[in-house]
Amino acid sequence: MSRLESMRRRLSAQIDGINWAASLIRDTDGDVLEMGLGNGRTYDHLRQEIPNRRIWVIDRVLKPHPSCVPPAENFLQGEADDMLRHLASQGCKMALAHYDFGHGIKDLDVAEGGALSPLIAAVMAPGGLVLSQQPLIGLEQITGPDTIDPERYLFYRAP
């Protein structure tokens, strides 16, 4: 599979996963967390699909498309571990989190996801959903939509 085909598969998984998760959290409490803003595509889709929730965003830099800049009060710039600790200290609880950090080096990405997992779990509302392209630990892995290859995108429920 070419890198272009892999990217198409990732984008389709993100769209289907966000749509699926948005339908499951409609009647629950909690905010939404986007970990890794990048160009802002998934953030923009979250805004569209979950318009009445506060969406927190964590990233090291703010470089999205101009139409995808989050409100300043919702953007946490810095290292993910520090920003997740900050959210936890504020008592923030997430109904949905999307984990989209990555360096593009599998071993490094898996290690980072594992290290951040307890911090992610600490900000999740009970039963909250986490969508991730990297494996996470300490959360219950669940089956996502059947349109997504289970090896391509991962789905978790917080205890």
Rank of each mutant, 00 (worst) to 15 (best):
R10C: 01
R10D: 07
R10S: 01
R10I: 02
L11C: 02
L11M: 08
Q14M: 09
I15T: 06
I15H: 01
W20Q: 03
W20A: 01
W20R: 03
A21S: 11
A21D: 03
A22E: 11
A22V: 05
S23Q: 13
L24F: 01
I25R: 03
I25K: 02
I25E: 02
I25A: 02
R26A: 14
R26G: 04
R26N: 01
D29H: 10
D29S: 13
D29I: 04
G30F: 02
G30D: 05
G30K: 08
G30S: 05
G30Q: 06
V32M: 10
E34A: 07
M35L: 15
G36H: 06
G40C: 02
G40S: 03
R41K: 08
T42S: 03
Y43M: 02
D44G: 13
D44H: 13
D44Q: 07
H45M: 08
Q48H: 11
E49T: 04
I50H: 02
I55V: 00
I55G: 03
W56L: 12
W56V: 07
I58S: 07
R60G: 15
R60N: 10
V61M: 10
L62Q: 15
L62I: 04
P66L: 07
S67T: 12
C68E: 05
C68M: 10
C68D: 06
V69N: 12
V69H: 15
P70Q: 10
A72Y: 01
F75P: 14
L76D: 02
L76G: 06
Q77E: 15
Q77P: 05
G78M: 07
G78K: 06
E79N: 14
A80R: 05
D81L: 14
D82L: 09
D82G: 11
M83A: 12
L84N: 11
L84P: 06
L84K: 09
R85T: 15
R85I: 11
R85F: 14
